[in-house]
Amino acid sequence: MGNLKGVALSLLFTSFVLHLPFAESDWFINYHIHVTNDLPLLKSPPNQPNLFLHCKSKNKDLGERGMVKGQDYTWDTKVNFLRTTLFFCKARWVGHKTRSFDAFVTDRDEMPCRHYHNSCMWSVRDDGIYFSKNNATWGNVYPW
């Protein structure tokens, strides 16, 4: 009787996995998240960071980085089994504004980011934080 329950649970799990809205290979896709500092240069001193970016997930703190104009903050992630992967960042524009934003949300970003080599492209600018799925067309998703 116990073995029959095990077989039934195995069949139930297999049926569940086969009907998930994604392929098994989706679990192995590595997403590349890029956040670029496209803010205007500081007037003085010119080579000092004008953006501080701190990114993390529930389980992984990537740390804060000071960034000069044109610098890129990059990391990789995979979508977890429950499809709840989330990375969020706090951007602090020195002497101006601070804004938090979601840099990777599975439901929102998985498909758009696949269009450009599995990359999610973000650009921090003087009027907000922009997203692009192709590194050519940008939209202001998080205004300051």
Rank of each mutant, 00 (worst) to 15 (best):
K58N: 10
N135F: 12
W75S: 00
A136C: 10
S100P: 15
V124H: 01
K69C: 06
S44I: 04
V105S: 07
F104P: 00
T106S: 11
D26C: 02
S44R: 08
V17I: 15
R65V: 15
Y73M: 01
T84W: 03
F16V: 12
K90P: 00
F28Q: 13
L18C: 15
M1T: 07
D109M: 00
F16I: 15
R108V: 14
D127V: 03
D76S: 10
V94Y: 05
A8P: 04
C113I: 10
E24N: 09
K56I: 00
L12K: 15
S57H: 03
F131E: 05
F81W: 14
R114E: 13
W122R: 00
R99E: 06
M1I: 06
N140P: 02
P143C: 11
L51A: 05
S10I: 09
K5T: 09
C89E: 01
C120Q: 02
T137A: 12
F22S: 09
T98I: 13
F101T: 00
A8S: 14
E110R: 11
T36L: 01
M111D: 10
E24S: 12
H54G: 07
D102E: 14
K60F: 08
V79G: 06
E64H: 04
N59M: 08
V94W: 01
D127M: 05
M67P: 02
H54L: 13
M111T: 14
K60N: 15
N80K: 05
D38L: 09
S119F: 04
L53A: 04
G2W: 03
M67V: 00
V94M: 05
L4T: 07
L4Q: 12
T98S: 12
P21C: 11
T77P: 05
L42A: 14
S15R: 11
S119W: 03
N30D: 14
G66H: 05
K133A: 01
H32V: 12
S44E: 08
I129S: 01
F88W: 12
V79D: 15
K56N: 10
S44M: 05
R92C: 02
G139W: 07
W138C: 05
L39N: 02
D127K: 07
S15M: 15
P46R: 11
G70T: 00
P21T: 09
L82P: 08
D38Y: 08
R108N: 07
C113A: 13
Y116C: 11
W75T: 01
V94R: 13
A8K: 15
N140D: 09
G63K: 04
H19E: 08
K43E: 11
G6M: 08
D26N: 09
L62E: 01
H32E: 09
A8E: 15
C89R: 02
C120N: 03
C113M: 12
I29M: 02
R65G: 01
M67K: 00
A136Y: 13
F28N: 14
R108H: 06
Y31H: 12
W122C: 00
A23T: 10
H96V: 04
S25H: 13
C113H: 08
F13A: 15
V79E: 13
P40S: 12
P40H: 11
V35L: 05
V105A: 10
K60W: 10
L62T: 02
G6F: 06
N3D: 09
N140T: 05
C55V: 03
L20F: 04
S123C: 04
